[in-house]
Design a protein around this nucleic acid. Structure first.
Lengths: 335, 335
DNA sequence: CTTGTAAATGTTACCGATACCATGTTACCG
DNA sequence: CGGTAACATGGTATCGGTAACATTTACAAG
């Protein structure tokens, strides 16, 4: 920041006071047109670039909307991000993005870092957090939004859906088409909490239907790639031959699984039905197409954007809003 | 920012001066251990959160690294982002991300917005910019990095590769395997400049080999999805039946194309060879696997992270560095 | 007991934009 | 022509940390 041009410099160049420069560069009407033009010219000439840091400091308003995502290499989270960006396009808000890699300790570190930038509001993907994170958020001065989930104990606002309920839809669909012996292919343990919710949904739904216990297969730590899905199927081939339905935690996993099953000579859906989750693009182009659930990732982003705006406009004292969207089942050739 | 807790409050609570609080919360050794503990306790009690905005303002150092990407819903750009994050993990730098949607006017708007946050450095994906963008960047106070490209006229540092040269590899590979009538499937016009470079590479390489002119097929505006790739193949089915090699701008497009060709009863690679670009995961799981080029997206991120650090440490006056990586051809079953 | 030295802590000013208030300048009225 | 409202512009203080410098304290050496 050595020879940076400030408003003072522009003011000197234009022969006015810094205050007038400030007014001229904003949409403040009470500046003479000629003066405004002179200021604009001076700013242009000097290559002046507005300093949002100083503005944020003075106004005690950063203009940031902090957002955490588990991963950005995921079409669904990316879709939420894009939709959110679009939904906020007419706003002055700037996204400040952090990626947690599905880890709660990373999330805590990130939240601390993000809050230090004094965002207007913060959006967290997921409804599970460390105690320290919760405490930080509760004392935060601005609204908190949890998305992509149905938190047991929401901190503030929510835009999400029930991962467990979505799995019920899949299980019921498979049961209706005569499947009985279910397997579930997901991540190890509970590191991916949304994945864990989905697994819970499957186990519960199968129990309700009175079908045999679900064979739970753990591929690797979240996130599971297509390749890891394929490898897991090869590894668990023996168990899988006993099943007639394999429920995967996501479409990429299902795609990898189908790919491996085909190589192994197991017919999908003849020998086994396979389902995914998330309505990724690959689900519709796979052969066979994959039965999946569309959670409306972009809708989450859009609704979130609207909600953020309305809450920020209301300026405090708004009661927490819990917006639950309903996922839809998409039947594909794989079941 | 109503009742925010400041260092002053912590200082009062701990019975010391704000300066001591500042020192105690940093790694400054010249604070008595007992005092430091008292300060830490007071901060904890009051729920104090450090204010990076004030720090950035006072120190005239934001701690931001601004980054623009054409899209985040793209495994390669996401990989670069992730690798960059990892590569900067031991740093205080915080990424400030902007998405251009492959549009130069968006990029200009974004660059202006990002520069107003006074980043330590800025990273641009791509080597083509509007005149105004170039001007902004030239007068920026800090290093500029262009990545994923081989700019004709670099602004400052570069970490990239030649998109055109990568295509030469593909064309030569196809020619060696006896293909003669080439088609190229990409985006309309030059909105995606990297795509345009790839197209140019194909046209030039084919000309050098003395083969018939390339049939250029334009699917839609960038970015082209798998689905759009499939639709384009259906639309241009007649032209494509005349070809024996279809070079696609990316793997997702190639995947969509193969999917559509299979439906149309055109055999890949029997009737026509298909190639992609980018070594997306889907390339290895497609049936047949897709011949592609690995550009080392994560390597770009890693090298960029290192370079950013060394340039920032050098603190100005470093001569521009141009790091060109070499993509590698991955032969798949589709050619 | 004085003095020197190092460690610990305090005071002051400042970063750039702008809210707030004060002042100057024009325009138009009766 | 004085009065006054509407408009245009300037001066000053301020936001929260912290560099730079000043001061105090603790204790050893003379």
């Amino acid at each position: 920041m050595r020879g940076r041009v400030t408003m003072r410099d522009v003011a000197r160049q234009a022969g006015v006071s810094p205050m007038t420069v400030s007014r001229a560069l904003k949409h403040d009407g009470s500046v003479n047109a000629a003066t405004r033009a002179a200021v604009r010219d001076a700013a242009e000439q000097l290559g002046y670039v507005y300093d949002s840091t100083a503005q944020a400091f003075r106004a005690q308003r950063s203009g940031f909307l902090a957002v955490t995502l588990p991963s950005i290499n995921n079409a669904n989270f990316a879709a939420t991000h894009r939709a959110l960006t679009l939904s906020l396009a007419n706003t002055e808000l700037q996204l400040l993005l952090g990626v947690t890699n599905y880890r709660l300790d990373e999330e805590e570190r990130l939240v601390r870092q993000l809050l230090a930038r004094r965002p207007e509001a913060i959006v967290l993907t997921g409804g599970h957090h460390t105690e320290a994170t919760r405490k930080l958020l509760q004392s935060m001065d601005g609204p908190v939004f949890e998305i992509w989930d149905q938190p047991h104990d929401p901190i503030d606002h929510v835009v999400g859906f029930s991962n467990a309920d979505a799995m019920t839809m899949i299980v019921e669909h498979l049961a209706e088409t005569g499947r009985k012996k279910f397997g579930y292919l997901g991540a190890i343990g509970d590191s991916d909490r949304r994945g864990a919710e989905r697994r819970r949904g499957v186990l519960d739904a199968v129990k309700v239907l009175g079908l045999p216990d679900v064979t739970v297969l753990e591929a690797c730590e979240a996130p599971i790639s297509m390749t890891a899905g394929a490898q897991a199927v090869e590894r668990f081939a023996r168990d899988i031959r006993e099943l007639d339905a394999l429920i995967c935690v996501s479409d990429p996993v299902a795609f990898g699984a189908i790919s491996a099953l085909t190589r192994l000579g197991v017919s999908v859906p003849g020998d086994i039905a396979v389902t995914g989750f998330g309505a990724f693009e690959v689900a519709g182009l796979s052969n066979p197409t994959i039965t999946t659930v569309d959670v409306g990732a972009d809708r989450i982003g859009t609704e979130l954007g609207r909600l953020v705006q309305s809450v920020l406009e209301a300026d405090g004292d708004s009661t927490p809003i819990n917006l639950q969207l309903t996922p839809t089942l998409i039947r594909g050739g794989s079941s």
